[in-house]
Design a protein around this nucleic acid. Structure first.
Length: 511
RNA sequence: GGCCCGUUCGUCUAGGGGUUAGGACAUCAGAUUUUCAUUCUGGCAACACGAGUUCGAUUCUCGUACGGGCUACCA
């Protein structure tokens, strides 16, 4: 069997959608699993939709996620170029070959004439399409004489080239995910193969490119299923039927609630990113959030996406990329669309966050603290991370919840103050301070045992004093284990903070 | 509207002619951490509907309903 070659072929019309990321991932997994070649091809046949920066965005996104390629627009390869606009001169001869063999024809209809035709057909209850029936009443090389056609061509009248589909013919192909799928050309229309600007449409370009790039498997979204029979016909008419790639149409990623496929609008409306990286639309200036900037781990995004539509034979949930490659197969991709569930993505993220080393996270956090005007060193920050990371979903959140490790709190959780800061509490804490002063080795164990003996001696309920203590030191009601936190803060800090709190917080009514 | 694809807990899904229909997220309860979050244990929770085939259908077939995709000189 020939070498597996697959391609991910996005169009640079904006940010890369999360559904596109999953398509890229499945292509990548399939290629790696089969020792194949993964190719990145840019499908920019529509010049009017070109968005500057989009191509680079796509490349950066895939790089961040760890989806690698063996050939592509960014790295070259022996089947290049890998950008369709750069391949423009290659397509014409195959379109003309189709015209010559009677499988395509020139069409000179104006947009107005097309619109009129569609309206007419619609009014008479027929499918409004340019097909075997309607083409005979349009302006094309099938209805015009050869002289007339030549005249128009010579005069530079704009034209497109359309495929000539048979009136009624069954087209079937075996989809790797769905099994045999069949269509009838009676329902298909004579799609444009070459536009009047001389560029091929997606349909034409993707067949020519896949053929010459020796693509063996086309793995793409289900939105392409309907045009697959057209592609099959093109392979046939071009005489490339025996090397036609196999098709696998992936189920779509749907909105979490309501209906329809997930769109870029849903993300910010529902409060989660739909793009891998933050994206600023160069035309509108609108900014959409990204997984990277939100603080997601790329491995978590990969793991989450892999399980959206694909499932291993056992119940494993957490997969390294190697495990994913190893377990992956097209047969285990489900047929039905999957609703997007951000809660599960967050759960995955927490799992992967816990796997990272504290120091690694601290390194990433350091500049953020610096920007907040907090200067600290890596070793202290690493310890802060070890105490706080299990409380957050994203590494970035640590910067928000851990400020008190660096600054004496001056803001206190008022609810907790009201509830816990009362009666003789401040007095007792001050007394406890004198005990703390005598600790020579200020570690969690020591502090804890001194705390307990202090409570016992003074007949204080230990629990009722712990929360005020935490409050005095951190300003908050929750946090990491109290005594470990105190240890990290250090003796002087702790003592000063307790004193500050006792001086500045007024106790509520006696109890 | 037409064509194509699909339908197992709220969500992602496993399974498959005879099962207590399994797991994960979410949710709820208990434990532990004298807090919050984690973690652990347990609970709630599903085969869209109707026919047919069969001794037996959630599983196979056909319909219905519902959902999705496509229906551009967009990809």
């Amino acid at each position: 069997m020939s070498q597996v070659r697959v391609r991910f072929a996005p169009s640079p019309t904006g940010a890369l959608h999360i559904g596109g990321v999953r398509t890229a991932l499945f292509n990548y997994l399939f290629a790696r699993k089969n020792n194949g070649i993964n190719i990145l091809r840019i499908e920019d046949t529509d010049q009017t939709r070109f968005v500057p920066g989009a191509e680079n965005y796509i490349i950066e996104s895939l790089k961040w996620l760890g989806i690698t390629f063996d050939e592509g627009v960014h790295i070259g390869g022996e089947y290049g170029p890998y950008r369709q606009s750069d391949r423009k001169p290659m397509y014409r001869q195959y379109v003309e070959q189709l015209v010559a063999s009677g499988h395509a024809y020139y069409a000179f209809d104006t947009p107005e004439e097309l619109e009129e035709m569609r309206q007419r057909l619609k009014d008479s209850g027929m499918s409004p399409q340019y097909d075997a029936t309607s083409r005979m009443s349009m302006k094309n090389s099938l209805t015009l004489s050869a002289d007339e056609v030549k005249l128009k061509l010579d005069a530079g009248v704009p034209y497109v080239i359309r495929i000539k589909l048979p009136r009624k013919e069954e087209v079937r192909f075996n989809d790797l995910i769905r099994g045999w799928v069949s269509f009838n050309t009676a329902q298909l229309d004579d799609k444009v193969l070459m536009k009047n600007d001389g560029m091929p449409t997606y349909h034409m370009a993707n067949i020519v490119d896949d053929h010459f790039m020796k693509i063996t498997h086309v793995i793409r979204g289900e939105e392409w299923l309907s045009s697959a029979p057209l592609h099959v016909m093109l392979y046939k008419y071009l005489g490339w039927e025996d090397t036609m790639p196999q098709f696998a149409h992936l189920p779509l990623i749907l909105k979490p609630e309501g209906n329809g496929k997930l769109s870029k609008r849903d993300g910010d409306r529902l409060g989660f990113p739909v793009f891998p990286l933050e994206w600023k639309d160069p035309n509108t200036g609108e900014i959409s959030s990204g997984y990277r900037e939100t603080g997601y781990e790329p491995e978590a995004v990969i793991n989450f996406l892999a399980l959206l539509g694909w499932h291993p034979s056992d119940n494993q949930e957490l997969f390294s990329i190697e495990e994913l490659i190893n377990a992956f197969s097209l047969e285990r991709i489900s047929k039905n669309g999957a609703k997007f569930d951000i809660d599960k993505a967050k759960w995955f993220n927490h799992q992967y966050l816990m796997k990272r080393t504290d120091e690694d996270i601290a390194k990433e956090l350091l500049p953020i603290f610096n920007n907040k005007g907090i200067s600290t060193d890596l070793s202290y920050l690493t310890k802060v991370v070890s105490l706080t990371k299990e409380k957050v979903t994203f590494w970035k959140e640590i910067a928000d919840i851990a400020e008190y490790f660096f600054k004496t709190p001056t803001q206190f959780d008022t609810k907790v103050v009201e509830k816990k800061w009362k009666g003789s509490i401040p007095e007792n804490l001050l007394k406890f301070v004198t005990r703390l002063q005598n600790i020579s080795d200020f570690n969690a164990q020591q502090i804890e045992s001194i705390f307990h003996s202090f409570a016992e001696e003074n007949e204080i309920n230990a629990g009722s004093l712990m929360q005020p203590l935490r409050l005095a030191v951190s300003g908050q009601a929750g946090g990491p284990p109290l005594f470990e936190m105190l240890e990290l803060l250090g003796k002087d800090n702790v003592i000063n903070r307790i004193k500050w709190a006792c001086d500045n917080l007024s106790a509520s009514s006696q109890s």
